[in-house]
Structure formats: C-alpha cells, structure tokens
Design a protein around this nucleic acid. Structure first.
Lengths: 144, 144
DNA sequence: TGTTAATGGTTGATTTTGTAACTAACAAGA
DNA sequence: TCTTGTTAGTTACAAAATCAACCATTAACA
C-alpha cells in the first residue's frame, strides 16, 4: 500500500519531457561538440543564421527564447572562431547584424545534414500519425 | 529560394523537445524554488525518496540518469536543510541509505500535490488519445 | 594473505549559466 | 533643448553543472 496516490514520476510531463529532451540531444551534441567545439547555445545561433540569414541578436532571442546574455556570449565565441561577423547598423547604432562567414556556412551545412539524418532516425520509431500528434503537442507545450 | 532544403528548426525533435521541456518546467520550478529554495536536482531526489522510499544515491542515479556528483550535492543540501537523513549500511560500508525526514515528507506531499495539479493542467490541452500517444512517444525517446 | 580492480560516493578545478547592473544609443514629451 | 524612458547588447559576480581525480571500502583472485 503506497502513499503516493498514483503519482508516477515518469508520467509527470515536465520530468518526462526533460528526460526525452536530454536523451534525444545526446547524440547530436556529441557531433557539434566533437566536430566544432560548440555549445548548445552556439549551434542554435548558428542555425538561426544559417536558416533565416542575417539577423540581429535581438531577433535570435525573440525566435529562440534564449536569454540575451546567452546569445551575447554565443555570438562572441562564434565570432572568435570565425563562424560569423558583426556589422553595425549605421542608421541605428545599437543594432548589429550577424552574418555567417563561409566557414560558418560550411559548419551549418554540415550540422544541418547531421541534424536531418538524426531527426529521421528518431522519427523512424513512430508512425506518421504519431509524429504528427507528437510534434503538435510539443509545439503547444512549448507555446510555439 | 532558400538554401535549407526544407529544414525547419522548430520541427527538429531535440530542439522542439528542449523548448517544450523548458517551457513546461517553468511554472513548477517557480514553486519548488520559491517555496523550498530547491534546485531541479533536489526536487528530483526528494521525489525519488518520496515515491519509492528509502534508497541509495546509486539507485537514484540509476533511475533518474542524473550524474552521481549532482546527486551527491543535492543529497548534501537536502540533508543540510533537514529534508533527509543518511544511514550507513553496516554490512557494506560504502552504501548509505537515504530517508526523508518528516519535514522532507511534508515537502514531498506538498510538491506532489502541486505537480499533480500542474500535470492535469498541462494535460487539459489534449485528448486522451493524444496524451496516450504523447507519453508513449516521450517514454520511447527517453528510453524509459 | 597480498595485490589489483571495481564500486559508492565526495571533492576541487574549470566551465557554463543566471541575475543584475551597466553602456551606449535612440525616442518622446515638456 | 532637457529630462526621462526604452532598447540592444555587454559585463561582473554569484550560482550551478561538468569533469577528473580522489577516498574508503569491498571483490576477485593469484
């Protein structure tokens, strides 16, 4: 006779989501870390620029919900390693536009290929209907 | 004409899962943090002991996949704050058994109630079928 | 035994994150 | 023009996570 009124930790959505997120990030993390020495914040910034093209740190923050200090540091590191460049907006000198360098583009293409393959592998465990419901539910939970 | 071969960041499962996990953890985090000054690692340890009863740090690690240093530090903090006690196994003095104190039990019951309510709220956005598929998919992704 | 390996757990150094306070630039209204 | 407020982005310091090295104890076995 337990004391837990049927509470199951592994059904609790915040916990379950965290476990799934962590486990499913591992293999991809290994690639961007080993291959390019990147952190999670860094591949995210890289992908934002790779996918959407030139944008400001602010805009990356709006889309990714990452905090601006994380982005600021990720941008600084990516710049140090010559993955991106910054350009001041001369008409509003608070802004700076970020662009991938050729090297950044190359890393993005490489990692995007890995991500695509990895996503396909993960998706392979589910039917189309399951995937549809899963992604929809996750988007709703993530409010995006 | 883009360059991204249809890659969508917000469909990439590791990214999407992380966003959903983070967003869905926020409100619960606020409670265990504000009410008990706990960290994520600490409520997890607390819940393991609350749900499964006396166990060792090792066993918590096996179930939660948290790294042993995280657990070691969480246990130390929970002990400092009188949420649990440690007892050496005299027949194998490497092991120590962890038990919640009354105060630990009380915090667990309180937080479990919050968690249950919060989970119900999150679940409220989905049909039974969607929830079934979602939890199942997450368990598979989390390999648990 | 005695030696070596494995196990449970802790510690210290380093890295990363979070929070707040801070520039610098622009905007709005008196 | 002179506040006062807002915005984009950085920095300093504290909190937390990571990683490797470390004890103490037990196991394996020559």
């Amino acid at each position: 006779m337990d004391n837990n009124e049927g509470f199951e930790l592994q059904d609790f959505l915040p916990y379950l989501l965290n476990q799934a997120a962590e486990e499913s990030s591992l293999a991809f993390q290994k690639v961007y870390k080993d291959r390019y020495g990147m952190l999670r914040t860094e591949w995210r910034v890289l992908f934002h620029l790779g996918i959407y093209g030139r944008m400001t740190a602010k805009e990356i923050g709006r889309r990714s919900k990452m905090h601006k200090t994380k982005i600021s540091r990720a941008v600084a590191r990516l710049q140090d390693r010559r993955f991106l460049t910054r350009t001041r907006d001369e008409s509003d000198r608070r802004l700076e536009y970020l662009d991938l360098t050729n090297q950044g583009e190359a890393a993005y293409h490489d990692l995007r290929k890995v991500a695509t393959g990895y996503d396909a592998r993960l998706s392979g465990d589910f039917s189309d209907e399951e995937l549809y419901i899963l992604r929809n539910a996750l988007r709703k939970l993530a409010r995006m």
